[in-house]
Computed example of a mutant assay.
Amino acid sequence: MSGKTVAVIPARGGSKGIPGKNIKPFLGLPLVAHSIRAAMAAETVDEVIVSSDDGAILETAVAYGAIGLNRPLNISGDEASSESALLHAVEAHTGCGAAETLVMLQCTSPLTTAAEIDLVVSERDRLNADTAFSVVEVHAFLWRVAPDGTGIGVNHDASKPRQRRQDRPEEFRETGAIYAFGKAGFCEAGQRFFGRSVPVVLPQATEIDLDTPRDWIALEAFARASGRAS
Rank of each mutant, 00 (worst) to 15 (best):
M1W: 05
T5C: 08
V6G: 02
A7K: 12
V8R: 02
V8C: 09
P10N: 09
R12A: 11
G13Q: 05
K21H: 02
N22C: 03
K24C: 05
P25Q: 06
L27A: 01
A33H: 05
M40S: 12
E43N: 12
E43D: 13
V45D: 05
E47W: 14
E47C: 13
I49K: 09
A56T: 11
I57W: 07
I57R: 06
A61C: 08
G65L: 12
L69Q: 10
L69H: 06
L69W: 10
N70K: 12
L73M: 04
I75R: 14
E79W: 10
E79P: 00
S81E: 10
S84Y: 01
L86P: 09
H93N: 14
A99I: 07
A99N: 05
T101S: 06
M104W: 01
P110C: 12
T112F: 03
T113V: 11
T113R: 14
T113Q: 11
I117D: 00
R124A: 04
D125Q: 13
L127A: 04
A129T: 05
D130T: 05
T131G: 05
S134G: 13
V138Y: 00
A140V: 00
W143S: 05
W143I: 13
V145W: 05
G151Q: 12
I152L: 15
G153W: 09
N155R: 02
H156Y: 12
D157L: 05
S159L: 06
S159A: 10
K160S: 02
P161S: 08
Q163C: 01
Q166K: 13
D167L: 06
R168K: 04
R168G: 00
R168A: 01
E170R: 09
E171Q: 02
F172M: 00
G176L: 10
G176S: 10
G176W: 05
Y179W: 11
A184E: 15
A184M: 06
A189H: 10
A189P: 09
A189N: 11
F193W: 09
G195W: 06
P199F: 00
P199Y: 00
L202H: 11
T206V: 10
T206W: 08
E207C: 07
P213I: 00
L219S: 01
A221Y: 01
A225R: 15
S226F: 13
G227D: 08
S230P: 04
